[in-house]
Simulated assay, not measured.
Amino acid sequence: MITNTLKNSSIRTGRSFDLGKMNLSQLWIAYLTYPTILLYFALILCSFTVMAYTYTAFVPVAVSIGAVMLVYPMVWYAIHRFILHGRFLYRMKWSASLWKRIHFDHHQDPHLLDVLFGSPLNTIPTIAVVTIPIGYAIGGMPASAAAFGAGLTITCIYEFFHCIQHLNYKPRMNWIQRMKQRHVLHHFHNENGNYGITSFVADRLFRSYYRDARGCPRSPTVFNLGYDIKEAQHYPWVMEETGSPPRDRPDGANTTRNAA
C-alpha cells in the first residue's frame, strides 16, 4: 500500500524520490521506510542494547552523549566545508566517484532524496570514528556504545530536517523556517557559507554565516561546486561516470518555491 501511495502521488523522478513534488505526509512515509534510515534505526537499537548490557554507571554514559552532542555539529561543519566542498577529491581518479556520490550529485539536483542521504558505507564508519573514541575515553564500552548510538540518532534528526529543507513545504514553526531559508541559500545562492543543517553556530564562529542573499554575492558555482566544463576537461572522471557534462542548474522542481 505504501508503494502504491508513493507511486500514485508522482513523487519519483526515475529511481529517486523528488522532494520538490512531495508533501509532509509523503516525506514521513518515504523517510520511515527508507533503507538507510531503517539501518540507522537498527544500529541505534543495537548500540543502546550494548550500552544497557554493559552498563555500570549513569554519569559516564550521560557525559559521553553530551560530548557527542557538542562535538558533532563541529565535525559535520568541518567535513562539509573542507572535504565535501573541497576540490581535491574530484581531481583524483580513485576518489572522484566518492565525491560525486557524497555531495556533487546533491548540489546538481538538491531535490532528489536518493542522493540527499549519504551512503551508509561512508557515513557509518565516519560516525563510528568520531563518536566511539569519545565514549570509550570517558567510560569504556557502555559509554562508547551510547556515544555511537547518540551519533546515529543525531544523524537521523539531521537527515529528516535536511529533507524538510528541500521539501515543497513551508514549516509552521519560525525557527524551522529560518533554518530552511539559510540552507536553501547554501544550495541556490552561494555554497560558500551556511554549511550547517540544524545549527549554524559553527558558521557564525568561522564567519561563513549569512542571513540573506544581500549578505553574500551570488556564486556561479553554487550548483556544480567548481566542477564546471573547464574542470571536467582536466578531470573527466566525474563527468564520465555521470554520462553528461556538469549542469549549471538542477533539473526537476522549481528552484524558487522552496525558498518561501
Rank of each mutant, 00 (worst) to 15 (best):
M1S: 06
I2W: 02
T5M: 04
K7F: 09
I11S: 03
R15V: 15
F17A: 03
G20E: 09
N23E: 12
I29F: 09
Y31R: 00
L32S: 14
P35D: 12
P35K: 02
A42R: 06
L45H: 10
F48C: 06
T49R: 01
A57M: 07
A57Q: 13
P60M: 11
V63L: 11
S64F: 08
V68A: 01
V68F: 05
V68R: 00
V75K: 00
V75F: 15
A78M: 14
R81A: 14
I83Q: 02
H85R: 04
G86M: 07
L89H: 05
R91M: 15
W94Q: 06
A96T: 11
D105F: 05
Q108S: 15
F117S: 10
N122C: 13
T123Q: 08
I124K: 00
I124Y: 07
I124C: 03
I127H: 02
I127E: 07
A128V: 10
V129R: 00
V129P: 09
I132P: 00
P133H: 12
I134L: 07
I134C: 01
A137M: 10
I138Q: 04
I138H: 00
G140C: 01
M141R: 00
P142H: 02
A145D: 12
A147E: 10
A147Q: 01
F148G: 03
T153R: 00
I154W: 03
T155S: 05
I157W: 02
H162G: 11
C163E: 08
C163I: 11
I164Y: 09
L167W: 08
L167I: 12
R172W: 09
M179W: 13
Q181G: 03
R182N: 12
H186D: 11
H187D: 12
N192K: 10
N192V: 08
N194S: 13
Y195R: 01
I197C: 11
I197M: 10
D203M: 01
R204S: 14
R207Q: 14
R207L: 12
Y210I: 15
R211M: 10
R214S: 15
R214Q: 14
P220L: 04
T221G: 02
F223Q: 08
Y227V: 09
Y227N: 01
Y227G: 02
A232I: 05
H234V: 08
H234A: 06
Y235C: 09
Y235F: 15
P236S: 06
P236K: 05
V238N: 02
E241T: 04
G243N: 08
P245R: 03
D251I: 01
N254P: 03
N254F: 07
A259L: 10
A259G: 10
